[in-house]
């Protein structure tokens, strides 16, 4: 009983973690399924077919390629301009700073369906053709605020004495920035970029409003598949992305741990 009292938070935590991971496990298991009909919802029997032919579902890999391209470009642009803004907001005091902070916060407080539809009305009003450009514009917009917020927190937590110490040790302002400030803010910039990539890669709602009829991103492809029949290949992609993310972070952790040990 005392043991239970002490460990109740551990047990609950593990159960909740199981809840978070359960769908991923199901996705993984069903990537080895050979479904009987068009929908991959019922277990039939084990098969490697989908893994051996990941692009076997027509149009899926094109959609995946487009999503990766959009996510790379959008996260790159929003990381650059978001980082610049984060520096301005994190270390300068100027009139209008509070309203700028609010302006950065608002897109995060706007439901995707509102943001998607308002962009659509703008593009319609401007007579702009929906397609890759409009998707990019939208993705840069909704990832931007997350980058600014993430990087700004890092900039604000930086001890101003560090940059002063650099100046005191004969570094010019630009040297102080590149040798001290930037390396210290870099993890925040990396986190912001990763978040932007993930948000962009995963977005369906905003994209669906601004993609037009012929441009199909991976989430749009999955959505379409859910209406017409789900190919096993989407489970393969889902599994690869999940294991890839866990693997990359795991390797980075292991390297970091070894480096710390070596020191």
């Amino acid at each position: 009983m005392a043991w239970l009292r002490r460990n109740v938070v551990v047990i609950l935590g593990l159960l909740v973690l199981g809840y978070i991971l359960l769908p991923n496990i199901v996705v993984m298991v069903f990537s080895f399924n050979k479904p009987t009909g068009r929908y991959n919802y019922e277990w039939n029997h084990f098969s490697l077919d989908a893994w051996l032919d990941p692009c076997g579902s027509p149009g899926m890999c094109e959609a995946l390629g487009l999503s990766i391209w959009v996510a790379v470009v959008a996260s790159l642009v929003s990381t650059v301009i978001g980082t610049m803004a984060a520096f301005a907001l994190g270390r300068y005091r100027f009139r209008g700073r509070a309203s700028t902070n609010l302006l950065v916060f608002l897109p995060m407080a706007t439901p995707e369906v509102v943001m998607g539809s308002s962009l659509l009305t703008l593009f319609v009003a401007m007579g702009m053709q929906s397609g890759q450009t409009t998707i990019l514009i939208a993705h840069i917009l909704f990832t931007l605020s997350f980058v600014v917020t993430t990087v700004k927190a890092r900039v604000a937590s930086l001890d101003p004495a560090l940059e002063q110490a650099a100046a005191d040790l004969y570094a010019t302002p630009s040297q102080a920035f590149w040798k001290v400030t930037f390396p210290l803010v870099a993890p925040g910039i990396g986190a912001g970029a990763l978040l932007a990539f993930a948000l962009s890669f995963d977005d369906y709602i905003v994209t669906n409003f601004n993609a037009g009829a012929t441009t199909v991103t991976f989430p749009m492809y999955v959505w379409g598949a859910a209406q017409r029949g789900t190919p096993v290949q989407i489970n393969v992609i889902g599994t690869v992305m999940f294991l890839g993310a866990v693997g990359i972070v795991g390797i980075a952790q292991a390297i970091g741990a070894r480096k710390r040990k070596a020191d």
Partner: peptide, 11 residues
Amino acid sequence: TVFQSYALFPH
């Protein structure tokens, strides 16, 4: 200067 917080570069 020897700073009050030392301001050693953590990286």
